[in-house]
Design a protein around this nucleic acid. Structure first.
Lengths: 206, 206
DNA sequence: GGAAAAAGGTGCAACGGCTGCAACTTCGCA
DNA sequence: TGCGAAGTTGCAGCCGTTGCACCTTTTTCC
């Protein structure tokens, strides 16, 4: 990784953390792009070469983790059942959004309190779901498409609802893990009733 | 209903349909608030006393129907089981978003093709779900909260995924109804396995 | 090591969504 | 008929966002 890329990453992080800090101190709407740029020591114009919008900077970290998960979804051990794959992805998702550090906590509060950010968080979750549906279609091509979409909607819907609940209740990371584990137990019970999901996968190399 | 209110409603409809028509003709981003205002014969400033944002005009009709559904959710026949209530709400939801008229079709296409509008549609769906969770808490106070949220997430998640699929596939209203019926069958099978939902409701008058 | 090319940063100007404010007009009611 | 409330409008302004042209830094290739 060259000097250029390292510097870019550092700048990106600087902008994101400056933004989070300012959002926390004086509020999201009360912070302008100029403020963020000044705090991160770049020009306002430069902000937009790192993030496409002010909202997106809130999701900077989450997007990195989601990209990771998506990438790792491809490296599925051949023959693994869809259910097992889902379990892995679900665990990773829960970890991806558990706010351990200070920036994470600010981000969670921001999203919880702002409807427009909530909407964008939901969209990201839906996109993750869609990615999983694609994988599932590859694994179980005999499964009817509406059924596949519905079953994944059920799975991700349950998980999402549990996470949203934990956030609304201001659960910490530990209690969140505990609650989502219970939610996943319910969801998995559902998934186990779909035969196509528990089979070890046909594994055509499509 | 006085002259005043009738006139307001007429203006609201005029703005909404002018907007949809313009979005269809020249595109969403290419249409400005001024354009819409001119087409609806009001001042640009007035637009914002009817809709809080340009995006919201796309959801004008949907929001009316969702408000209806929410209102009717309160008039639940006493003793009806949560599952039966869900069925009613789900049917109403599917109807609420089935695009029968031309404006509806434009609206559906707009949302399908624009990520930011998709996000807002998801938010509306999530809000409907939340309303249902509140009702469920009233009906079945003995049901654990995480479980209640998860189960409703499962139900609405499945329904939402099916609807999204139909839209992506450009299904017409009939095929959408057929596909969502299948999705609902899957979802209801899940809900039937939760004892608290099939009981005719405790009906404390909370 | 140095020149050319590529990539990144910056300032400027502009557009458009959105808001507060202060008139002005219209409507409902007594 | 006249008064107060509600609705409409224009204005000025903030801010997010973008295209463009110019400059600086890094990389690449000889």
């Amino acid at each position: 990784m060259g000097l250029r890329e390292r510097k870019k990453l550092r700048t990106r992080r600087a902008i994101a953390s400056a933004a989070l800090r300012l959002f926390d101190e004086r509020g999201f709407e009360e912070t302008t792009i100029s403020d963020i740029a000044a705090a991160a020591d770049v020009s306002p114009r430069t902000f937009f070469s790192y993030f496409p919008s002010k909202d997106d900077v809130v999701f900077a970290e989450m997007d990195e983790r989601l990209a990771d998960i998506r990438a790792r979804l491809a490296e599925r051990p051949s023959g693994e059942s869809p259910l097992a794959t889902f379990r892995r992805v679900a665990d990773a998702l829960v970890e991806a959004i558990s706010a351990e550090d200070e920036d994470g906590a600010i981000q969670v509060a921001l999203i919880r309190d702002r409807p427009s950010l909530q909407a964008q968080a939901l969209k990201r979750f839906a996109d993750a779901e869609e990615g999983f549906v694609e994988v599932l279609r590859g694994i179980a091509p005999d499964l009817d498409e509406v059924t596949a979409a519905t079953v994944m909607g059920v799975a991700f819907g349950g998980l999402r609802a549990a996470i949203t609940y934990c956030r609304a209740q201001r659960y910490d990371a530990d209690r969140t893990r505990e609650a989502t584990a219970r939610a996943l137990a319910i969801v998995e019970q559902v998934l186990e009733s779909v035969p196509a999901l528990t089979r070890p996968a046909t594994d055509d190399a499509s």
